[in-house]
Design a protein around this nucleic acid. Structure first.
Length: 278
DNA sequence: CGGCCCCTGACG
DNA sequence: CGTCAGGGGCCG
């Protein structure tokens, strides 16, 4: 479900509820959600572990443990993490339940079951989850127009496709690729190699702005998050084009069009993002 | 690179 | 019934 802003939102909501807690028991309803090590070792190791904090890198979340180990997870398309009171009704597709020492439970819910968990013990390097292949965060000082054009200006593929490459910049998915390209006034299907210096600059500027705005717009209380099951961010008013095909462009009033770019549904303004028709 | 796969649910 | 969905890995 989530891209960087949503994962960050989840982190900010959950971290205060998890920091300082100890995991007393893990129920592995669907052990195949655990990628590493084995589900049994995963359960044995996290049982009794104290949680110190959480971390986010791109779309990955980590739960840091006092002993130096960490749980790494990726929610993929439909994964959801909830901290619930005891006896909170169990959602369909609940696959993991971490019992905590305050009686609450951390539950992993995922209808499509694409989400995955890994555990790395103190000193164990993560070379398997994919988080080690991530490019810079959008807020990183390394994320500059020179960096972006240097990484992409020889690629002939669509710029949108390039933005979805997590090794170039971490955390952008289908929604925020469309949103950032809209703000930067670049059509999603433009070849990366055809972008001008000015366009690289606009795109580099747009990305952290759009992401920051979305994190702000997503903010909610733990209560709101629990009741809404973390599904409420999709129609955020800050989304200017994603989900708005057929509606007027918020900038020029032209009808936003939809096309398939890089195999993904894409929405853009045919007028202010570049000129030609859909 | 494109194409297919992992899954379920919503929608036309 | 078919198609699509916020993700990513793997395959030739």
């Amino acid at each position: 479900m989530p891209e960087l802003p949503e994962v960050e939102t989840i982190k900010r909501i959950l971290e205060p509820q998890l920091a300082g807690r100890t995991i007393t028991r893990l129920i592995l309803i669907r052990p195949d959600i655990v990628e590493h090590p084995t589900p049994e070792v995963f359960a044995d190791t996290v049982t009794g572990a104290a949680i110190t904090s959480m971390d986010r890198r791109g779309k990955y979340l980590s739960v840091l443990l006092q002993d130096g180990g960490r749980i790494v997870l990726h929610l993929r398309m439909t994964g959801c993490l909830l901290v619930t009171p005891p006896n909170w009704p169990e959602e369909k597709h609940t696959h993991l339940v971490f019992h905590l020492d305050d009686g609450n439970e951390l539950r992993f819910i995922d209808p499509r079951r694409f989400g995955r968990f890994w555990l790395f013990r103190n000193g164990e390097e993560d070379t398997i989850s994919g988080s080690h292949k991530l490019g810079p965060e959008p807020f990183d000082n390394l994320f500059t127009a020179d960096y972006l054009s240097g990484a992409l200006s020889k690629r002939k593929r669509a710029i949108k496709d390039c933005l979805l490459d997590q090794s170039v910049v971490a955390g952008i998915g289908n929604i925020y690729a469309d949103e950032t390209l809209f703000v930067a006034k670049i059509r999603p299907d433009r070849a990366a190699s055809a972008l001008t210096d000015d366009e690289w600059q606009r795109l580099t500027d747009a990305i952290p702005v759009v992401i920051t705005q979305a994190i702000k717009a997503n903010a909610m209380t733990p209560g709101e998050y629990l009741v809404g099951k973390g599904q409420e961010y999709r129609n955020t008013p800050t989304l200017q084009v994603y989900g708005h095909a057929g509606e007027p462009c918020p900038r020029c009033g032209e009808i936003l069009c939809r096309a398939v770019v890089a195999g993904r549904g894409s929405v853009y303004c045919p007028t202010c993002q570049g000129g030609s028709s859909c």
